[in-house]
Amino acid sequence: MTQRRPSRQSVATIFAAPIAIAALSVIALIAALTGDGWRDALSWTGLAVPILTVAWAMHARRI
């Protein structure tokens, strides 16, 4: 059985998804605080992304 070496990734590659999720969350929170209507929909959608991401990661890890 051969051992796999961990691949080297750049800092940008490692932190790209968490930074994108954080930016989307900040935009969603600002939208929730500043208005109604379409901003409510944007905030619900934006704040659901981190929850769905965690659920997807937990499911993928079990497989």
Rank of each mutant, 00 (worst) to 15 (best):
M1G: 13
T2Q: 09
T2L: 12
Q3I: 15
R4F: 08
R4W: 04
R5W: 00
R5Q: 08
P6N: 07
P6G: 03
R8C: 02
S10D: 08
S10W: 04
S10N: 05
V11Y: 09
V11D: 09
T13I: 04
I14Q: 11
F15Y: 14
F15M: 10
F15S: 13
F15V: 15
A16R: 12
A16D: 07
A16P: 00
A16Y: 11
A17N: 05
P18L: 10
I19G: 11
I19C: 14
A20F: 11
I21R: 00
A22V: 15
L24M: 15
S25P: 03
S25Q: 01
I30P: 05
A31R: 01
A32S: 14
A32W: 13
G35T: 05
G35S: 05
D36V: 07
D36M: 02
G37T: 01
W38M: 06
D40Q: 09
A41S: 02
A41M: 01
S43I: 10
S43M: 13
W44S: 06
W44Q: 06
G46L: 09
L47H: 08
L47W: 07
A48G: 03
I51G: 08
T53V: 07
V54R: 02
V54G: 03
V54T: 14
A55T: 10
W56Y: 06
W56R: 05
A57Y: 04
M58S: 03
M58L: 11
A60D: 00
R61V: 00
R62W: 00
I63M: 06
